Deep mutational scan, measured.
Amino acid sequence: TLFEALYDYEARTEDDLSFHKGEKFQILNSSEGDWWEVRSLTTGETGYIPSPYLA
């Protein structure tokens, strides 16, 4: 399933992933509550992002 970022986000820890509004992601793991592990389709990087920032 693909999701798109609604807002920009700046990583706060080394496990987080910074991203920009409009960036698209593949969800790798959504079992961690509000923090999902994703792969950016723009950069190929993986990390955790806050799920409320996605649509």
Rank of each mutant, 00 (worst) to 15 (best):
T1W: 14
T1R: 11
T1N: 12
T1C: 14
L2N: 04
L2V: 14
L2W: 13
L2R: 04
F3V: 07
F3M: 09
F3S: 02
F3E: 01
F3A: 05
F3C: 09
E4S: 04
E4D: 05
E4Y: 09
E4N: 04
E4G: 10
A5C: 07
A5M: 05
A5Y: 02
A5H: 04
L6P: 06
L6Y: 07
L6C: 08
L6D: 07
L6M: 11
Y7G: 04
Y7M: 09
Y7N: 06
D8H: 04
D8C: 08
D8A: 05
D8F: 03
D8K: 02
Y9E: 01
Y9T: 01
Y9M: 02
Y9I: 04
Y9C: 05
Y9P: 00
Y9S: 03
Y9K: 04
Y9G: 01
E10T: 12
E10A: 07
A11F: 02
A11M: 03
A11I: 03
A11G: 10
A11L: 12
R12G: 09
R12I: 12
R12D: 08
R12T: 14
R12M: 13
R12A: 11
T13F: 15
T13S: 12
T13Y: 15
T13R: 14
E14C: 10
E14K: 11
E14H: 10
E14N: 13
E14A: 12
E14G: 11
D15K: 15
D15F: 15
D15G: 14
D16R: 13
D16W: 11
D16E: 15
D16M: 14
D16Y: 13
D16V: 14
D16F: 14
D16I: 12
L17C: 05
L17Q: 02
S18R: 02
S18M: 04
S18N: 03
F19H: 03
F19L: 03
F19D: 11
F19M: 09
H20A: 11
H20L: 11
H20Q: 10
H20G: 06
H20Y: 12
K21C: 07
K21A: 09
K21E: 04
K21L: 11
K21T: 09
K21Y: 05
G22P: 01
G22A: 01
G22N: 01
G22R: 00
G22C: 04
K24T: 07
K24E: 04
F25H: 00
F25N: 00
F25R: 07
Q26M: 11
Q26L: 14
Q26G: 02
Q26E: 14
Q26N: 03
Q26S: 05
I27M: 04
I27A: 02
I27T: 02
I27W: 04
I27D: 00
L28R: 12
L28H: 01
L28P: 01
L28M: 05
N29T: 06
N29C: 10
N29P: 00
N29S: 12
N29F: 05
N29A: 09
N29Y: 04
N29R: 03
N29D: 11
N29M: 05
S30F: 07
S30H: 07
S30K: 12
S30D: 13
S30C: 12
S31F: 08
S31C: 12
S31Y: 08
S31K: 08
E32C: 14
E32S: 13
E32T: 12
E32W: 11
E32A: 13
E32D: 13
G33P: 13
G33Q: 11
G33Y: 09
G33M: 08
G33L: 09
G33F: 08
D34M: 12
D34N: 06
W35F: 08
W35K: 09
W35G: 01
W35T: 11
W36M: 08
W36K: 00
W36R: 00
W36I: 05
W36G: 00
W36V: 05
E37L: 15
E37H: 13
E37P: 01
E37A: 03
E37N: 04
V38F: 11
V38E: 00
V38C: 02
V38L: 02
R39A: 06
R39K: 12
R39V: 12
R39Q: 11
S40P: 04
S40K: 12
S40W: 04
L41P: 04
L41E: 08
L41S: 03
L41F: 11
L41T: 08
L41I: 08
L41M: 11
L41R: 00
L41V: 09
L41C: 09
T42W: 10
T42N: 06
T42M: 09
T42S: 11
T42E: 15
T42H: 09
T42G: 04
T42F: 07
T43G: 02
T43D: 01
T43F: 08
T43W: 05
T43A: 00
T43N: 04
T43M: 03
T43K: 01
G44V: 02
G44C: 07
G44S: 09
G44R: 01
E45M: 13
E45I: 08
E45S: 07
T46G: 01
T46L: 11
T46M: 07
G47Y: 07
G47T: 10
G47Q: 02
G47W: 07
G47I: 06
G47N: 01
G47P: 00
Y48H: 10
Y48A: 02
Y48N: 05
Y48M: 12
Y48P: 00
Y48R: 14
I49V: 15
I49M: 06
I49D: 00
I49C: 03
I49Q: 00
I49F: 02
I49L: 03
P50Q: 08
P50W: 13
P50E: 05
S51D: 03
S51P: 10
S51G: 11
S51H: 07
S51C: 07
P52D: 15
P52Y: 15
P52I: 15
P52N: 15
P52L: 15
Y53C: 11
Y53R: 03
L54F: 09
L54C: 08
L54M: 10
L54S: 09
L54D: 07
A55Y: 10
A55V: 14
